[in-house]
Structure formats: C-alpha cells, structure tokens
C-alpha cells in the first residue's frame, strides 16, 4: 500500500541535535530535551524568586507551591530526616515532571519514554537509598531482609523473597514511568495515523469521519497531562518510600 501508514515508534528515534557540534559528540535530541527541562526549572526559580515578595506574584506562587508540595511529601513520608533528602527528591521530581510535560508538545522529545533514561534514574535512586541504609545502620541494614517474628526454619525461604522484592524496586520504578510515557505517545501517534488513513482511503467522507480520532486525541491529551504529573509524583513518592525504608528499616 502506497498511502500513509502508521509508524508509531518512529517518534522515539534518536537524532543528533545542535548541528555539526552535536553530531561530533553524539549530542542527541533526547539530551536537548533534558537540557531544556533543566533550563526551564532553573529559569523558573530564578525568575520566580527574584522578587522575594511577601505576597507572591504568579510565578513566585507557582514556585512556592512546587517547593512546599515536595517538601511536605518528603517530611510526611520519610519523617523529620526527610529534610536532608529534600534537594534530591525535588531535583528528581522536577526533572521528570518537566521532561514529561515538554514531551507532550509537538516537536519536543519525551526523554522519559526511553528505558535507558528511566532505568538510570531508578538505579541511581536504588543505589543511593541502599547506600543511605548502610551509612545509617552499618551492616545491621542487612536485617532489613529478615522479617521479624517468623520461625527460624522459614528464613531460608523468606530471605530470598525479601531480597528479590528489594531488587525488583528499580525495575518497577523505571518500567512504570517508561511504559506510561511510551504508551501515551504511541496512542497519540496511532490515532493521528487513523486520520491520515481515513482521509486517504475514503476521501471527503473519511476526512469528516476522522473527527472521531481527532476527538479521541483531544481527550488523550488531557489524560496524558494527568499521567505526566502523576508519574512524576509516583516516582518521587516511591523515592521517598525507599529512603524511608533505608532510614527507618521497616
């Protein structure tokens, strides 16, 4: 068939950005999006906190709401020690949130739709929380894998289960974010492809009928906005939970 076809995964392909310099050092469009996300966050805070008004303006209010939201999440989930981890959690949350959000715009690349990126983030969180556990408790942290109050003969069975449950954390953390972002963008592409196929196949009647996939895409846009925020939130709150486990060991 010579007409338009649906290439749902083509949008995730990496190209090089920044012209010849980018080609020389393999600076990809994914890196461009990461840089954009980081720049937007820093710019938002630089602009929002410049006034330091007692009664905040619009940008300052946005920045303060974002700050307090993550700060409350840290203190509520980890406890008072959570203040120490606030910079880390806030960086992860805002980076993923901005990455998800700018990925929703046309011509922008959703870098959170690559498992390489999300797995790197999740492995960092995993290794960091494990390191915090050993730093706080020393080798007593290994007791985390020994559930309390079970008879000794069950331990050879329960310790591997706890260990695998612990090891599965970076996998579930990364796959969840990656799968949600990829699925959303694929659905968009597929419905947009339907519109082209309908128009090519049925002419004017198909063009009228393609209002249906267009409406679905509009509805999906709202859903994707929700998912973008929610996935950043889930990633951040799970980071907090893992740090809570590392600090309190239960």
């Amino acid at each position: 068939m010579a007409g338009p076809s649906i290439d749902a995964l083509g949008q995730f392909g990496l190209t090089t950005g920044l012209g010849p310099i980018g080609r020389a050092v393999n600076f990809t469009n994914s890196n461009e999006a990461m840089l954009a996300a980081a720049t937007i966050i820093v710019a938002l805070f630089a602009v929002g906190l410049k006034a330091r008004a007692l009664v905040p303006g619009r940008v300052q209010a946005l920045v303060e709401v974002l700050y307090e939201f993550v700060h409350n999440m840290c203190v509520d989930t980890i406890g008072e020690e959570g203040r120490r981890f606030f910079p880390l959690v806030f960086t992860i949350f805002s980076f993923i949130l901005l990455g998800n959000l700018i990925g929703l715009f046309p011509y922008f690349f959703a870098f959170t739709s690559h498992i390489a990126v999300t797995l790197a983030l999740a492995l960092f969180v995993f290794l960091f929380s494990t390191a915090v556990g050993f730093y706080t408790h020393g080798f007593r942290f290994l007791k985390f894998f020994v559930p309390s109050g079970v008879p000794g003969w069950l331990l050879p069975l329960l310790v591997p289960i706890e260990f695998i449950s612990y090891l599965s954390r970076p996998v579930s953390l990364s796959v969840r974010l990656f799968a949600n972002m990829t699925a959303g963008h694929v659905m968009w592409e597929v419905f947009a492809g339907f519109m082209l196929l309908l128009t090519a196949g049925l002419g004017v009647f198909g063009a009228i009928a393609s209002v249906v996939p267009l409406g679905l895409n509009v509805a999906l846009a709202a859903l994707e906005l929700l998912v973008a925020g929610l996935q950043a939130y889930v990633f951040a709150i799970l980071t907090c939970l893992y740090l809570h486990d590392a600090v309190h060991m239960h």
Partner: peptide, 18 residues
C-alpha cells in the same frame, strides 16, 4: 489512582527479576 499505577508493575517486576 496512585495504587492502580503501581500494583501491576510491582508484581511483574519481581517476577522478571526472579
């Protein structure tokens, strides 16, 4: 909603690792 997002993946991830 948070739980719905988490539960399925949690289960599969442990299986995959094992």
């Amino acid at each position: 909603i948070e739980l719905a997002m988490r539960l399925g993946v949690e289960m599969v991830a442990a299986m995959v690792i094992a």
